[in-house]
Simulated assay, not measured.
Amino acid sequence: MSSEPLYIQIKRFIENNIENGHWAVGHQITTEMELTKQFSVSRMTVNKAIRDLVGEGKLERKPRLGTFVKAPSTKAESPLLDTRNIAEEVQQRGKMYSSQVIQHASINADQEIAIKLGIMLDSPVFYSEILHKEDEQPIQLECRWVNAKYAPNYHQQDFTTVTPNEYLSKNCPMSAVEHTVEAITCDANLASLLGMGAHEPCLLLHRRTWSGDKLISSALLYHPGSRYQLSSKITL
């Protein structure tokens, strides 16, 4: 019997059917109710497996119709309504993940950062600036400020071997997240870091995360618009 979690086994079953051509692009997959019976699991377990595959761009839900195999996207994609580890996202797409730490420092909060984190001026804050890559191509620049009071060991982490998301998820379990997305024009330095051409659009995701009633971090996530997209799937 496999030692993998049940939802992973269901994901593997769906992925195998797609990869061996049994379920082609546009094919409606087995219903959640049928998968629940087939694997003797709860509807919640099946839903998590399918939700993950939707987030990875392998499936798409069509309200009142079902779930279908999705055509591969030429863009990297992240779910807008989730906060997943970007290293896992890249690896699940069958790509190689790597990162470059540009800055990693302990600072005192200026007025702007104090407001973002809801702390007093000059409070200790950890700042990290990391360039995330997929097959050596930049897909995200992450600029993150973390309240040092709630994550005191953040500045000691090696962010070439663990991502900030992974570390914070384990040490400050997320209870709430705030997202704002906008399209911006990059300055020359940002465009160079992300390998963007002149006049290429840039997607900027503002994110703040809470653990319990504690505001843990505030981040700016920059993405090259021609190679990255944010998705949101809502079933009505």
Score class of each variant (00 low, 15 high):
124 P>R: 03
84 R>C: 04
80 L>P: 02
179 H>N: 10
169 S>N: 09
80 L>M: 10
131 L>C: 07
179 H>K: 04
189 N>S: 01
90 V>R: 01
158 D>L: 09
130 I>V: 14
105 A>L: 11
134 E>F: 08
170 K>V: 12
168 L>W: 11
128 S>F: 07
123 S>T: 15
103 Q>Y: 08
134 E>W: 13
132 H>A: 05
127 Y>P: 00
170 K>T: 08
185 T>Y: 15
96 M>I: 15
176 A>L: 09
156 Q>C: 14
106 S>L: 11
184 I>Q: 07
117 L>F: 12
175 S>L: 04
111 Q>D: 08
101 V>Q: 09
152 P>S: 04
164 P>S: 14
160 T>D: 13
154 Y>T: 06
92 Q>R: 15
153 N>T: 12
91 Q>C: 00
171 N>S: 10
134 E>H: 06
134 E>L: 12
150 Y>Q: 01
165 N>I: 15
130 I>W: 06
91 Q>K: 08
177 V>Q: 04
119 I>F: 09
119 I>Q: 00
108 N>A: 11
165 N>V: 15
155 H>E: 12
120 M>I: 09
87 A>T: 05
139 I>Y: 08
90 V>K: 02
125 V>A: 07
164 P>N: 15
189 N>I: 01
122 D>E: 09
160 T>S: 15
163 T>D: 01
94 G>H: 05
111 Q>Y: 02
154 Y>N: 04
143 C>L: 12
103 Q>E: 13
179 H>L: 02
99 S>M: 14
103 Q>V: 05
140 Q>Y: 03
81 L>Y: 05
124 P>M: 12
93 R>V: 04
104 H>R: 00
167 Y>C: 00
188 A>D: 02
123 S>V: 14
131 L>Q: 08
165 N>E: 12
118 G>W: 10
155 H>P: 01
112 E>G: 00
177 V>F: 05
159 F>P: 01
101 V>R: 10
96 M>T: 15
115 I>N: 03
186 C>M: 08
160 T>W: 08
158 D>S: 11
143 C>M: 13
189 N>F: 01
144 R>D: 09
152 P>K: 07
141 L>S: 00
122 D>L: 07
117 L>T: 05
155 H>K: 10
149 K>Q: 09
92 Q>Y: 09
149 K>W: 04
151 A>Q: 06
100 Q>Y: 11
173 P>I: 14
179 H>S: 02
109 A>L: 13
110 D>C: 03
142 E>S: 11
161 T>K: 13
103 Q>A: 09
82 D>H: 06
95 K>A: 13
